[in-house]
Design a binder for these strands. Structure first.
Length: 223
DNA sequence: GCGTGATCATAA
DNA sequence: TTATGATCACGC
């Protein structure tokens, strides 16, 4: 399998992403010497990993942006035949300690969403995986309005956690940013280390962006 | 278990 | 049809 080194500049990263825009998943897999899985049931995240390899992402599974030195996060985003996001987008784990909950400015969500390279790809079930095409990349930084929207949601949700009410959080909360389970299974447990959490065990959760938010990103920038 | 990459499956 | 809650795989 070919090894791709990290891009040294934003420009180089964008050029790499533009170079694969329009090709199929089969073509990219061939370039990287990878076999395409039959089904995505047991290979969730496969395409995201293929993209990381082919663009030279280097953060591995560390809680920081994929292109570490550039501070840019990579996100693949499945789109339907109308170009709309098919799924919400996972951002990061919901940390349950006082420092992580103390301010938006120092939060992992803000860090991950400082700058994102979105790579849309066709994901309608009627198209065989190998024939699905990769779309044009969108390099995005949140606007002031978007930042405020995300911050408001983050604050509301984190306030609940700080008050010891994490188990009252529902996925329906948050206009654009939501908290949902992120675990191996529904019986998974993690410790709530925030000061009002009384060290209770709770289901691990993550932050996700709703499709309405990501749609505004990818359809805005494309025309 | 934690954090990464996400999508599945069914209730609403 | 859509969104919530659940789940799959992997490195460490």
């Amino acid at each position: 399998m070919m090894n791709v080194s990290p891009p040294l500049t934003r420009k180089e990263l964008i050029e790499r992403a533009n170079a694969i825009a329009g090709i199929t998943i089969l073509q990219l897999a061939n370039m990287m010497g990878k076999n395409i899985p039959e089904s995505s049931i047991h290979t969730k995240g496969w395409f995201g990993n293929l993209l990381e390899l082919s663009l030279g992402a280097n953060a591995a599974n560390a809680p920081e942006p994929d292109f570490t030195s550039l501070g840019i996060e990579l996100k693949s985003i499945p789109i339907d035949t109308n170009g709309k996001p098919k799924e919400s987008t996972y951002i990061c784990v919901t940390q349950l300690n006082p420092i992580a909950l103390s301010s938006w400015e120092s939060s992992l969500v803000k860090c991950k969403l400082t700058e994102v390279l979105w790579i849309p790809f066709e994901a309608n079930k009627n198209t065989p995986i190998p024939l699905r095409r990769i779309g044009s990349p969108v390099l995005w930084k949140p606007s002031t309005t978007q930042k405020n929207q995300l911050k408001d949601d983050w604050q509301e949700l984190c306030d609940m956690i700080v008050l010891g009410n994490i188990d009252q959080i529902s996925s329906s909360m948050g206009k654009y940013l939501q908290i949902r389970p992120k675990a191996a299974h529904s019986k998974s447990l993690t410790r709530d280390n925030n000061q009002s959490g009384k060290n209770k065990l709770t289901l691990p959760r993550g932050f996700y962006l709703r499709p309405s938010f990501t749609d505004s990103i990818i359809s805005h920038t494309n025309h």
